[in-house]
Design a protein around this nucleic acid. Structure first.
Lengths: 202, 202
DNA sequence: CGAGTTTGCAACCGAAAGGTTCTAAATATT
DNA sequence: AATATTTAGAACCTTTCGGTTGCAAACTCG
């Protein structure tokens, strides 16, 4: 197993595992996998190397744990965003704005960690694409829920909802790429606006 | 200067610089920057390390040269795709199919090298975002040309063209992410179809 | 209190990283 | 042919990489 369960005996652990994972999430999010050294990991976490290895495993197991945690957080953010949104097309607009706001709230403008990870590690370390695939599937599924709710009841068209959620999911990935690539606030807002306009007319 | 000009005297160079850059392009495209070692570079190019350093410079200068070359190739592909496309909305569909076909022609399904590079190196090695920014600008500009041509003359709306090219450019980035992340042929076709549908109805 | 167990931490390890040096071979110029 | 210049390529250098070892400190349980 990659992550050891907390024991009931012996010297107590001096760090909180989740807090460490959060710190490492921020680190990997910014620097990616390969450019982050174990020295960086030690510094960012404040935990010494042997403890890290004992509790979390090797570097790539640590990274996998961070990705799992990020995936969880991202999915719950999506759920919350969709729950909060109004019915009808308004809800789609609200969702889009909420998603964009979340991406822009990160001061480093690092985009999406899952996009970063799958982009970096596809074709080098097999297995990580699964995270990206799982996220994409979940995103598309949740968008289907949102879009089904937004479609007027009389013109219910499952195929149309499918296509629109596919388009939105792909657009959002491209949006995260633009954010990470350092697009200006102006450009980012133009990008978001372009999707708002499409949502209005589809 | 990063790349030395070919001298007129002395022992002749035993390798073709462009062929080397092409081989290294394929290499970096698949593995990214950090996960590619100079040993990999030597093997893929068939050129020994000191010669590489003399002719191309350090690892990141080599990478920059590869990115420049990729950017050139990509831009000329875009131009060709747009030149070949029919007038009217048909041309936009043809462009989209041509773009997708180019991405799928790569057997490794590595997506877009500029997306890969900017995603990996933003926040670690400043300067590489410029390549991504230049590409995004050029893509958007060319899409504007294509879309302007596709809009019926009487309903000419510059702001609309702006928005649609912004949307398309963002979508295409997301498309490349999905390709690299290992999306199935089915999913890829659903993604492309979703954009075709939007183009038909916008 | 003492036996057993787990953690913290300094020091260490082999391998691989990016980059350089130095010599012999191959050409243009005179 | 001799000289100047450039390349090819093996060997080498320093630093950093991910990962481990060994021991003292801190706790639970009997």
């Amino acid at each position: 197993m990659a992550v050891s369960e907390t024991p009931t005996v012996g010297r107590p652990r001096s760090f909180d595992e989740d807090a460490v994972l959060d710190a490492l999430m921020a680190l990997f999010w910014r620097k990616g996998y390969a450019q982050t050294s174990m020295t960086d990991v030690v510094e960012a976490s404040g935990v010494h190397k042997p403890s890290l290895y004992r509790v979390f495993g090797t570097k790539d197991e640590i990274f996998a744990a961070v990705l799992r945690r990020y995936l969880e957080a991202q999915l719950s953010m999506l759920s919350q965003l969709i729950e909060q949104s109004s019915p009808g097309t308004d809800g789609v607009h609200e969702f889009l704005d909420g998603f964009a706001a979340a991406a822009l709230a990160d001061p480093g403008r690092n985009g999406c960690l899952l996009v970063v990870a799958s982009n970096e590690l596809s074709g080098t370390m097999p297995g990580y694409e699964d995270f990206a695939g799982a996220y994409r599937s979940a995103l598309r599924e949740r968008l289907s829920v949102l879009l089904t709710r937004s479609v007027a009841n009389n013109e219910h068209d499952a195929a149309l909802v499918e296509q629109r959620s596919e388009l939105l999911a792909t657009f959002l990935a491209g949006f995260q790429v633009a954010v990470r690539a350092g697009a200006s606030d102006d450009e980012i807002h133009r990008i978001v606006d372009s999707m708002h306009t499409i949502i209005d007319t589809w």
